[in-house]
Nucleic acid binder design. Structure first.
Lengths: 116, 116
DNA sequence: ATTAGATTTCGGTGTAAAACGAAATGAGAA
DNA sequence: TTCTCATTTCGTTTTACACCGAAATCTAAT
């Protein structure tokens, strides 16, 4: 991987909303509408953030009925990506925003959320 | 440190030229004109890159006569910054561009460089 | 003090990226 | 098939950033 691609990895991490997404996905897999609810952004915006994280290799997706679940790419073969993922809990811990996000994803009901 | 500031750390790493600067500074301290010579950018551009890395905490500066030496902030008290610095050799190694950069800084003569 | 040279700061330009709403896509239910 | 709804893509706007040259700053030597 060339240095331009390494820079792109860090660019994917350079947005607070994308860091919040990664921290949430380290709790459990989530669909787009759940993340949208927590971040209070437009669905299209969240979708774009997810595609950036996916392109960088940090997350993968899985179809489940009409939903698309996103999850951390835990078995990533790229050692740089894998080490960054493993460092995230150390780098970002006890953050107020992230704590609230995690509280929210634990009380969110996907079925209710998507049908309102 | 809030999550916005963590994002700024990664933003500082999200530019290939700034990664090249960090890799060069892990070999030895360098002045602005030496880095400018290697990167082939305008001096003002390099100066701005350095101020971004300095603001993020990755590097520190030291006056030496008419020169300003920049060096890795090795004794950084921030554990996130410190761990990122220590991971850089693992994340970026055997890169062609970086290898050429390091060859150049080993053959560059600061006195000649600045007086041409 | 004045000059010379290294670096920083300041405008300006072009490009990238974040955000949104609307339209398009794709998958399950009726 | 047709409808519903989650998600993606597209077009647009606004903001941020990389880059440059010129002017300003700061230091050392004349």
């Amino acid at each position: 991987m060339q240095i331009e691609e390494k820079a792109k990895l860090f660019k994917a991490l350079s947005d607070p909303n994308r860091l919040r997404i990664l921290k949430m996905l380290q709790v459990r897999k989530l669909c787009v509408c759940e993340i949208t609810e927590v971040l209070s952004l437009a669905t299209s915006t969240v979708s774009e953030h997810l595609s950036i994280l996916k392109r960088a290799g940090f997350i993968i997706e899985e179809k489940e009925g009409k939903w698309v679940n996103y999850m951390i790419n835990s078995n990533c073969c790229d050692t740089t990506v894998a080490s960054i993922i493993s460092m995230l809990p150390f780098w970002i811990s006890n953050d107020n925003t992230v704590s609230c996000d995690i509280d929210k994803i634990n009380s969110v009901d996907r079925a209710k959320l998507c049908c309102k």
